[in-house]
Nucleic acid binder design. Structure first.
Length: 931
RNA sequence: CCGGAUGUGGUGGAAUUGGUAGACACGUCAGACUUAGGAUCUGAUGCCGUAAGGUGUGGGGGUUCGAGUCCCUCCAUCCGGACCA
């Protein structure tokens, strides 16, 4: 009987669906395992062969765990709110809900085609009101919570109110600052609006004015991780800074816990590095520099400012030890004090400079890399030496980090050094020989010189010494800064979760939780509303109800979706605590690196909040994270001669003036173009002419990212149609380690295809039909099986799927050579193969006379004892080749035995008297014994 | 510029973690069966050499009886962050 893969696959996919084979229950005894894929955004383009890589890996792992007796949660869903559907709606007028629905249907059919073991009864869609009801609910939890700095955790805001009512908010030491501190009596006397404003400053989800990344082309704000080099991640549109009222998540409050949590999870080093860089914690000190009153006309500012106030400029440094190396102070151009302190004769020039900086986008600024800056005419007094220090303004100091002002130490900092050289500012050397005048040396190991009371001290030790001294003397304080800012949480868009918030007299009110979900209303136009507001501002009733017109960003739903899978139909809670306790953390999370700083950080933060509020029992969502590599497309080029409909073969292209043009990789066999297919591809190709070499047209090739525009995408449906889902699954794994990027090459799939056909022939003979026998296997046949079990088990456990596939091939080849068609060998092999190629396994399982599905039961094959017990019976070849040194010391104990029938344990016992230290195997052959 | 990863045949990639480098597969070549094959099977295939033999894991150096694997250094590619004080 022939291996009719398509019939088999369709049959079993229908069976699985009908019988609900992959439905999981929330209360089975025994160990659980939660295997999760990053759910996709259902784009209109559908899946290409790169997408399922991670899904296949996770599917193999979950099926494997299931066969081993775990209760496995392996769900799938869709991140269905988001910009592209809305952009599409703007262009075509189609409702995003409709296009999304259509796209999801395509995705699901493509996924089902590959034979995944998802429990679709648990599917979630972030744009489904039953789902976003709980996104809104969790948002309200965040809105109603604050971060307690003493307990370092989120607490209900009602506790804060109680505290304010009884104790107020007074500083532990020092004078209370008006506007910041207040007594209980004062609090109780505040108006509702005043109270609300104060509370807003503490809420985990809060509304405030701030500089945001505004993208004019998209008509919305973007989070920092959605902006790359001053351009939007989606669409590459320019992004500018703009002050707007926005919702934020107070993720900075969790900065330390997000960092600490990294140590408890199994992420790759690269991933941890990326996250901690993004958080960007640095410890240092803020130091006050008094302005020299002689040189500048200072107006005392009435409002205290963290950047400095009155006659003081506050700088941030990580190196307080270099205090005596300060040669100048630099303010960011946007710094509030810049214009206040500059002397009249410099004012015009400074204003002009600030204008110049503002006029350029961040992008232009970074591209230029010119040193710019201007002197303000004002001076500071060095807190210890009393020296006058000039104050400059320069764009290399960023307003958004630290205090927006720095103390420049040219001998120790590269940028300060370049600046000093450029403007001929004299440089003080405080590190002796470590600085030669050529370039700055950021060492911490130098012995300080020219540094008054610090002379002779090693810099590393001086850092803390100075910081402490400054704190005592009130000159500065130790301070920790983060690069990470609070996350902008509102978008001026339609296709997102509406905020469950109404505005009254300028204060935000949570809507009653009983009214959730607050449904996304119908709109007539997807165009932005007035004043940079979203489309919701165009709806009369919405505005009259004083509802928030922003919607939540794409990452809202994805921040907690993994919890909903545990209890997807619950209408009373986002997830029953009983079930989140049952399943616990995600044991394995598979997805791309692109979410390193966005989704992963946000969902980690939400998890921590929910944990703090006692709603779930763990504070890190993902125990282990695997980042699958990208499958790259292999693009093909044809070379068109200038101005003609004439194409020249790649080898001859240099003889003509020809441009490379992407052509569809699917009509190219290797590099040979299918000329007929090419002519039919597009109308203007119909009468194309070709210059061939050796009678063939050869294309150029290049490896690039897979994308529609490069015509190098391969649709998994086509591959499944031609080779079958099982071949496709195994080939994707066979390509290489899951974590690695690699180019797709359709040609190579033949090898895996041949393997499955060969495997089929272990059961079926072309002429004789079913050839499986009940004869007891020979030792050599057992040996093949047991090598396979051990190797494939280990490989699957450690995600080495490519070598596991190889092991299948080896075993199959060996059994073919042995002409082994014995049930006792083939049956366990089928069980092993099941996670990788479930359809063929099911079919053969049935053919062997089994009545139940192979995919659902558990088998002793995977138990340690199974292999060990039987392994004892088999021969281990020993080929003790001696080596130079060992030869000398071990001569007496070296046994040169070839093909000796002994189990490993027996060998060990046999050598016991000689106390073997190490037995060296090479590919399961013992080659040497170290005694 | 900083940080992370990677570097092995014509190609994708193995190598028990310091122990016969190149498993498995693609491709290529030769052969068998075929009217025919892009089906199937067999054999060969790192490089140089007719062979004996030599050589070989990005380059150079080191540790070791022994290095693809560990250390130093340089080079290349990919990814991420980039004026973060």
């Amino acid at each position: 009987m022939e291996y009719k893969f398509r019939d088999i696959e369709k049959k079993w996919q229908a069976y699985w669906r009908k019988e609900g084979v992959y439905k999981v229950s929330n209360d089975l005894p025994g160990p659980t395992c939660y295997v999760l894929d990053m759910f996709p955004y259902p784009s209109g383009a559908g899946l290409h062969v790169g997408h399922p890589l991670g899904y296949i890996a996770s599917d193999i792992y979950s099926r494997y765990k299931r066969l081993k007796g775990f209760n496995v949660l392996h769900p799938m869903g869709f991140d269905s709110f988001g910009l592209p559907a809305e952009q599409y709606a703007l262009e075509t007028g189609q409702h995003p809900a409709e296009t999304t629905k259509k796209n999801i249907a395509t995705f699901k059919s493509q996924l089902d085609n590959i034979g995944f073991s998802y429990d679709w009864s648990r599917e979630v869609q972030t744009s489904d009101p039953h789902f976003y009801k709980w996104t809104q609910w969790i948002f309200l939890q965040l809105f109603d919570s604050y971060f307690c700095n003493t307990e370092k955790k989120a607490l209900p805001i009602s506790l804060l109110i109680k505290k304010y009512e009884t104790k107020g908010a007074m500083p532990k030491t020092g004078e209370p600052i008006p506007g910041k501190h207040f007594t209980a009596t004062q609090w109780n006397a505040f108006s509702e609006k005043e109270k609300a404003d104060i509370l807003m400053r503490r809420r985990l989800a809060y509304c405030g004015y701030g500089e945001v990344n505004w993208c004019e082309a998209l008509g919305t704000v973007l989070a920092n991780d959605e902006v790359i080099n001053g351009l939007s991640e989606r669409g590459n549109h320019p992004v500018v800074k703009k002050t707007l009222r926005q919702w934020y998540l107070r993720i900075t409050a969790y900065a330390d816990r997000l960092l600490e949590g990294l140590e408890t999870v199994d992420f790759s080093e690269a991933m941890k590095e990326m996250q901690s860089n993004w958080i960007g914690k640095s410890t240092g000190a803020e130091i006050n520099f008094n302005l020299s009153t002689g040189t500048s006309p200072i107006r005392l500012t009435p409002n205290p400012s963290p950047r400095g106030e009155g006659g003081v400029i506050r700088v941030y440094t990580t190196r307080p030890d270099t205090i005596f190396g300060v040669d100048f102070i630099v303010l960011a151009p946007e710094h509030e004090l810049t214009l206040q302190i500059c002397t009249p004769e410099h004012k015009a020039a400074v204003e002009e400079y600030i204008l110049h900086v503002k006029s350029r986008s961040e992008r232009e600024r970074m591209a230029e890399k010119k040193i710019t800056g201007i002197f303000t005419g004002a001076y500071c007094i060095h807190p210890y030496s009393g020296r006058e220090i000039p104050i400059w303004v320069s764009e290399y100091v960023l307003i958004g980090y630290g205090t927006g002002a720095i103390m420049a130490v040219p001998c120790g900092d590269e940028r300060d050094h370049k600046f000093a050289q450029h403007f001929h500012i004299p440089i003080t050397n405080i590190i002796g020989d470590h600085y030669q005048g050529g370039e700055a040396n950021p060492t911490k190991d130098a012995v300080l010189a020219n540094s008054s009371f610090l002379d002779g001290m090693v810099m590393r030790d001086a850092i803390d010494f100075v910081a402490e001294k400054m704190e005592k003397e009130g000159i500065g304080i130790r301070k920790i800064h983060y690069k990470m800012h609070d996350a902008a949480f509102s978008r001026q868009r339609y296709w997102g979760e509406p905020f469950p918030i109404t505005w009254n007299e300028g204060t935000a009110h949570a809507i009653d939780k009983k009214e959730l979900p607050l449904l996304l209303p119908h709109v007539d136009t997807y165009h932005p509303g007035p004043n940079g507001e979203g489309p919701l501002a165009n709806i009369k009733e919405w505005v009259e109800a004083k509802r928030e017109t922003n919607t939540m960003p794409g990452y809202a739903g994805s921040s907690w979706y993994f919890l909903r899978y545990m209890d997807p139909e619950n209408e009373k809670e986002f997830c029953d605590r009983k079930f989140s306790d049952y399943w616990g953390q995600v044991d394995l999370y598979i997805g791309g690196t692109e979410h390193a700083v966005g989704h992963l950080l946000y969902s980690r933060m939400w998890t921590k909040c929910l944990y703090d509020l006692g709603l779930i029992g763990f504070d890190e969502p993902y125990k282990k994270l695997v980042n699958q590599g990208m499958i790259l497309g292999s693009s093909r080029f044809v070379y068109r001669v200038h101005g003609k409909n004439l194409y020249v073969s790649a080898g001859l292209k240099d003889q003509y003036a020809a441009d490379p043009i992407h052509t569809d990789v699917n009509i190219v066999d290797g590099v040979e173009l299918d000329i007929e297919a090419f002519k039919n591809l597009r109308e203007d190709h119909a009468d194309a002419e070709f210059i061939l070499e050796d009678g063939k047209y050869l294309c150029g090739a290049e490896v690039e990212k897979m994308s529609k525009s490069k015509f190098n995408t391969v649709n998994p449906d086509d591959i499944v149609e031609k080779y079958g889902a099982d071949t496709f699954r195994m080939y994707e794994m066979f390509l290489g380690p899951v974590e690695m990027s690699k180019p797709w090459d359709t040609k190579g799939i033949e090898g895996v295809f041949r393997f499955l056909k060969k495997f089929w022939r272990l059961f079926f003979d072309e002429t004789r039909g079913l050839v499986v026998t009940d004869e007891p296997p020979l030792p050599s046949e057992w040996k093949v099986l047991h090598h396979a079990i051990r190797k494939i088990g280990q490989d699957t456990e450690k995600f080495s799927f490519n070598t596991a596939v190889s092991a299948f091939m080896i075993a199959t080849n060996e059994l073919t050579d042995l002409k082994c068609h014995k049930r006792q060998v083939l049956e366990p092999l089928l069980i092993l193969l099941c996670p990788y190629a479930p359809h063929i396994a099911e079919e053969l399982w049935q053919i062997l006379g089994k009545t139940s599905s192979i995919t659902r039961a558990t088998y002793p094959v995977f138990k340690e004892e199974y292999v060990k017990e039987t392994a004892m019976l088999y021969p281990v070849a020993i080929n003790g080749k001696t080596r130079t040194e060992l030869n000398l010391s071990l001569e007496a104990s070296q046994q040169q035995v070839e093909e000796m029938v002994l189990a490993n344990d027996i060998v060990k016992k046999w050598l016991e008297g000689k106390a073997p230290k190490k037995i060296i195997y090479v590919r399961n052959k013992m080659i040497n014994v170290v005694v």
